[in-house]
Write a protein that binds this DNA or RNA. Sequence first.
DNA 1: GCGCGCCTGTAACCTCCGTCACAGCTCACG
DNA 2: CGTGAGCTGTGACGGAGGTTACAGGCGCGC
Lengths: 232, 232
Amino acid sequence: MSEALGLERVRLLEGLPRQVLDDLRLRCRWRRWAAGQRIIERATPGRDVLLIVEGTVRVGHVTEDGREVTYAEIGPGGVVGELAAIDGGPRSAEVIAATDCRTAALPAEAFRALLLRHPETALRLLESYARIIRLADRRITELSTTGVAARLARELLRRAQRDRAGELAVEPLPTQEQLAGVVGTTRETIGRIMIQLTRNGLVRRRGRRLVLLDRDGLLHLAEPGSEPITEA
Amino acid sequence: MSEALGLERVRLLEGLPRQVLDDLRLRCRWRRWAAGQRIIERATPGRDVLLIVEGTVRVGHVTEDGREVTYAEIGPGGVVGELAAIDGGPRSAEVIAATDCRTAALPAEAFRALLLRHPETALRLLESYARIIRLADRRITELSTTGVAARLARELLRRAQRDRAGELAVEPLPTQEQLAGVVGTTRETIGRIMIQLTRNGLVRRRGRRLVLLDRDGLLHLAEPGSEPITEA
DNA sequence: GCGCGCCTGTAACCTCCGTCACAGCTCACG
DNA sequence: CGTGAGCTGTGACGGAGGTTACAGGCGCGC
């Protein structure tokens, strides 16, 4: 069974002895999901921890009036749904498959037992939480103190990677709607700003690939108190 | 030494055997702080974990252009500064004494050793992080989808407690500036909304005590998509 | 190769809220 | 019981960005 190999990819479980992994495997329920499927529904009582073996999921929240907010995107090797397992609370966010996914569901009790029996794993989890909390705090600060243009510029810089041609690019470029969810604004506003960035020669779009032409310009935009974008 | 009694108050350490506490005590550096003093400075290399034995601190961030954002207020029995101890990163927030405080500083290594040796304590910490992450996510959602009035109404409802007279009140009422830091806006805007709330009979202020007269009205305001505040 | 859905561009409008600039309070402390 | 520092009230003003409403494009599937 090829599935048996999946758990090795989960970063949280790295370093655990083989036999512990084997034991966990027995307790998991495996499942596949198609892109777009809802994996976890908010305000629901489930407690399972989901280990993401293949694919990427989006963790977020849809408000009553239909606006979507994205908290995080989690790729293969990641874990979602542990909050409920840890504190026994209800699901506080939605988890949606961003691509086709394969997951292993571990019951809360098994997860807690694992943490108690293997403190190094608990510490790993604490480390990842430290990162999450830092990111969340930064995002709160950005939302309360900077404008949309600065937030978008930062998000693009964060996602950009240098490719072998030496270009700094975001690829695949999320849709404007998705960026809006991450940056905390509307699709239209993202669109408007993208156009300004393009006109001013800061970026260039080719299909689902966005090249950042002027890193310094974007960095400048990202600073609080920087000038609003000028007309082309 | 009365200080020796302090650590018992720290919630994270509850349940640890006496001798472990005694050992921790030996490793701590005790200190007092006056209200307003800066206890931890952002972007600084310190790694100590601070156990708050007396007083309350405010965790937040001051942006380059001088705006203040408050992430959390932590009272006696709480812990701050553990992020850096856990992941070795720099201080990501400022910690300021909101009142006179007494703290015990525990070196990062001792803290990590504690977590490894006492997994129940690590799990407690994970539980508190679960709560923090949930709160942060909610705040991100609120900041990106609701207006200031709704955010303030929620904040007031969260802080309110029923007193023996049966009144729902926030006491002591933070200054408008502090509320602005928590809610993500400016002092003036808080002031204006407070006046509207008062005029419309939703709240009444007496010095540093704010009585919430109309809980349902505030709840309604707190909903996204609710009407803006009407003129009196 | 032809549609049909999902994306993206564009425009007009209007409101919330940040900014700046003071005046008036209040209360703690000398 | 005065006095000043830190709070709070208020007003004018402008701009960022949310809203609504389409038109056009692009790519995927049939």
